[in-house]
Design a protein around this nucleic acid. Sequence first.
DNA 1: AAGCATAATGAAAACGACTTTCATAACGAA
DNA 2: TTCGTTATGAAAGTCGTTTTCATTATGCTT
Lengths: 148, 148
Amino acid sequence: MKRAKGFLQRIIQAIKRGPLRMTRKRERLLGALLAMDRPVSAAALRDKAGLPESDLVTVYRTLEAFEGVGIIQRIPLEESGCLFELTEPDDHHHHFVCRECHRTERLDLCLAIELEEQARKLGFTQINHLMEVYGLCEDCQPAAASGD
Amino acid sequence: MKRAKGFLQRIIQAIKRGPLRMTRKRERLLGALLAMDRPVSAAALRDKAGLPESDLVTVYRTLEAFEGVGIIQRIPLEESGCLFELTEPDDHHHHFVCRECHRTERLDLCLAIELEEQARKLGFTQINHLMEVYGLCEDCQPAAASGD
DNA sequence: AAGCATAATGAAAACGACTTTCATAACGAA
DNA sequence: TTCGTTATGAAAGTCGTTTTCATTATGCTT
Ligand SMILES: [Mn+2]
Ligand SMILES: [Mn+2]
Ligand SMILES: [Zn+2]
Ligand SMILES: [Zn+2]
């Protein structure tokens, strides 16, 4: 948990600033997100937060609420679904994602900014981009097939 | 339809080389893909091919078959679903995609190759990447809200 | 401490883009 | 034509996520 000390307090303030309410569940979910060392699925987050009885919809709604405050980044998986991660509002980055275990490595280099510039020249507005690299991490290498 | 003349024939040969069969429906779907000037959804492709009575599963299965031959590129949309496009097997590129009308502009610059190199250094294998830029194209600009 | 408007929650059903299953039809090599 | 294999359609299933709606909790105001 190598994160700024007042981070959580600042987040809570940001949330209370709007119409959102900070409930026990949201505190637990926020705490779990803060403690995570990697992006997680909604279901995994619910479990990590120690709220196994909570409905998943609550998790999704909470994530949506947090996303609105700008502290959640969504990382799409290759096939379906996505992972969620707590980030500072202006911390733009991408990831290497293991297709198998969903281990992710942060990728600080973003090469898409100039692409967005090109899009702008084409007349596009409200531009954003998606860039993730997928593969099998060290731990998920397929067992070497013998004679196939 | 600015595509090499023998392209279709080469594709048909490639397909017949394997266990795949070239049926009327597949010919029509292939023709529609060839005639498209932009990536399309499975449902739109079925309609463009003039096969409104065909089941969508046939379209998906055909696209899957063509993908296996390396002539289909899949372009993920921001929210859900994806578009399909006919490409030459080694024609790697990305897109600008309009969130609204799904108009796409080809983006020949691929910046992710060096990222894949980084992933390799991290021990990842079977690496690929996803990179698309989303926005609203010229034709889909929101009507300027007056006094809001 | 109550009261109250508003936001959060849970249960269940709905969504949407696919995918699977299985029986039937079409293909194409021999 | 025959026959093994592949393609197709109908219907149901999947899976992550969202919607609906009735109930409960929050937190600001008396
Ligand atoms: Mn990250
Ligand atoms: Mn393209
Ligand atoms: Zn970026
Ligand atoms: Zn690329």
